[in-house]
């Protein structure tokens, strides 16, 4: 076919280009610009080169110390969240009914926590856990278990983790349920004929067939938990001390509390990069694990 050259066609791309520029490229470049400078207010900026980045990766400085400590907390938090929510979601999906009105009932109940806004979730748990008036806090303390998320770091972590599990396990469960529903009946029938045990059905059929949705679930939960801000901010405010101060909370403190735009910009760039890299690693590992490696013809 003859191709016609028509440069006017570029105008058709213009709206998308403008939207992407104003929503992503320009803000991003502004952050890059800030990250290389220092400011003392009054819109006065001084060139600082890669100074902030050097400081950020050096634990002996104030900025580096705070960043690396909160990064560590974030990684531990995400690891715990994934270790609980993924298996729990799978178990819930497996035990859900397959037919009848119970399906709809289960889906609605599961979807409820997902519909609640982040800061409402935080407020619910903040009150729920209070030792004086909260149902959870009061009950635990009257049972003789000392629980106070305001003063005890372990309790604060436990509260934030349980809150996240309550809020987001449904998402994993719903995704897994969709994956399970897409398995044709013939697989179960064949497994029955082959005499497979419940466990064998799970490992040979259900888990491999859920592979794709589990990848999505892990990615979503990792990104969300790694960027968590609102809920712990509402419940613990990052405390006690700095024990639940995650990167995002630290970032807001530096950028808006101290107005250190340079430091905050450098930090947010590194933060962004870490998320991209970890997601890429997850994606590569999980797609390779799912798809069989091509066998060389000569290697038979």
């Amino acid at each position: 076919m003859e191709k016609t050259v028509n440069q006017k066609a570029w105008f058709l791309v213009l709206p998308v280009f403008l939207v992407v520029a104003f929503s992503a490229i320009i803000p991003m470049m502004t952050v890059v610009n800030y990250s290389l400078q220092d400011t003392f207010g009054n819109n006065q900026f001084f060139w600082n080169g890669v100074g902030w980045f050097k400081e950020l990766l050096d634990p002996s400085t104030d900025l580096g110390g705070r960043f690396l400590a909160s990064l560590g907390r974030n990684l531990i938090f995400s690891a715990i969240i994934l270790a609980i929510e993924v298996p729990l979601g799978i178990v819930i999906a497996l035990s859900m009914p397959r037919t009848g009105w119970q399906v709809a009932a289960c889906l609605v109940i599961l979807a409820l926590p997902l519909l609640i806004p982040w800061n409402v979730v935080g407020t619910i748990w903040q009150i729920f856990g209070r030792p004086d008036i909260g149902l959870l806090g009061y009950t635990l303390n009257s049972l003789g278990i000392e629980y106070n998320y305001v003063s005890n770091a372990f309790d604060a972590w436990a509260t934030v983790i349980v809150m996240d599990v309550w809020h987001w396990t449904s998402l994993v469960a719903l995704l897994c349920y969709a994956g399970l529903k897409s398995i044709p009946d013939a697989y179960y029938q064949a497994a029955q004929i082959d005499g497979a045990s419940r466990w064998a059905v799970f490992t040979a059929i259900q888990l491999p067939k859920m592979n794709r949705v589990l990848l999505i679930a892990v990615l979503l939960r990792f990104m969300d938990s790694f960027m968590i801000y609102t809920e712990p901010f509402v419940v613990t405010g990052g405390g006690p001390g700095n024990s639940t101060t995650f990167i995002s909370i630290e970032l807001v403190k530096i950028a808006l509390g101290q107005f250190d735009l340079g430091k905050a910009a450098a930090m947010s760039l590194v933060y962004n990069l870490i998320i991209l890299i970890v997601c890429w690693v997850f994606y590569t590992v999980m797609t390779n694990a799912g798809a069989a490696r091509p066998v060389k013809e000569g290697a038979k």
Partner: peptide, 11 residues
Amino acid sequence: QVFQFPVIYDT
């Protein structure tokens, strides 16, 4: 039993 669509264990 052999089904309409091949049933094999992927992994």
